[in-house]
């Protein structure tokens, strides 16, 4: 039952004279993990920013059949799209608890649910639980990534956009984070995953897209991409 959650049509983004995205189209199926891979500067982060309303774009982005063009970023969150930005976007001057509470900003009328989710996040990341009262700037890189993902869970979106969750993490920690992403996906959340670590991302995902210079060059089932000679040569280093 392929149910399209997010549909991107002919998406273009420019910064001044520089074109970051040139006419990209693809669909994201509900419940799946879609991996977006490509070199630095290929436009992966720009695509996520367009979806979450952080940059202006040309073309169409439909979420549950509704065009989100021109919507303010905080409105897009209220529709159920959660973006974990590159570099994690932790509010370092806030405690871990405050970071998590802030992410539930729009759920004012659901204190019960917020409390439940808060406990769930702490359960999922016991290391955060030990540090709830600590300023989040003092967390290590791995813990910050956990906090960023924890925040996404607090927002309770149906679609989570993850921008390079393994960046700067040692292979051991990256493994752990990927395990968590898998768990979140199994709970029914749809995920769009941008990764430098193409190998791990494709292993985890159902579907994969390859971007180059702002264009979509290859798209298919993740398992197929893993075996594709072009992908193997350019992104997997084999």
């Amino acid at each position: 039952m392929a149910n399209v959650l997010l549909s991107i049509k002919n998406l273009s983004v420019s910064y001044g004279n520089i074109k970051a995205l040139r006419g990209i189209s693809f669909d994201i199926i509900e419940g799946q993990i879609t991996a977006l891979i490509g070199a630095n500067g290929a436009g992966k982060s720009s695509l996520l920013r367009a979806v979450s309303g952080m940059v202006k774009f040309d073309g169409e982005i439909n979420y549950r059949g509704r065009n989100i063009k021109g919507m303010a970023a905080h409105k897009i969150v209220s529709m159920g799209i959660t973006h974990v930005p590159e570099g994690r976007g932790i509010f370092g001057s806030l405690t871990v608890r405050e970071n998590l509470t802030l992410a539930a900003w729009l759920r004012r009328n659901d204190p019960e649910g917020v409390k439940r989710d808060y406990e769930h996040v702490i359960e999922l990341f016991p290391r955060l639980g030990e540090r709830v009262g600590q300023l989040s700037a003092t967390l290590s890189g791995g813990e910050q990534q956990m906090l960023a993902i924890g925040r996404a869970l607090m927002s309770k979106g149906d679609l989570i956009l993850l921008d390079e969750p393994s960046m700067g993490l040692s292979p051991v920690l990256a493994d752990e984070i990927f395990g968590i992403i898998d768990e979140i996906s199994k709970a029914g959340v749809t995920i769009l995953l941008v990764e430098q670590n193409a190998f791990m991302a494709l292993q985890l995902s159902h579907h994969g897209c390859v971007m180059e210079n702002g264009e979509l060059t290859l798209e298919g089932a993740a398992a197929e991409l893993l075996d594709d000679p072009r992908v193997r040569q350019a992104y997997l280093g084999v």
């Binding site: 493994d175 990927f178 395990g179 985890l204 993740a222």
Partner: peptide, 16 residues
């Protein structure tokens, strides 16, 4: 290997 390189491969290969 323990601190940095890790054991090779990912533990979460998806079954399809």
């Amino acid at each position: 290997i323990e601190a940095y390189l890790g054991s090779s491969g990912v533990s979460t290969r998806r079954d399809k």
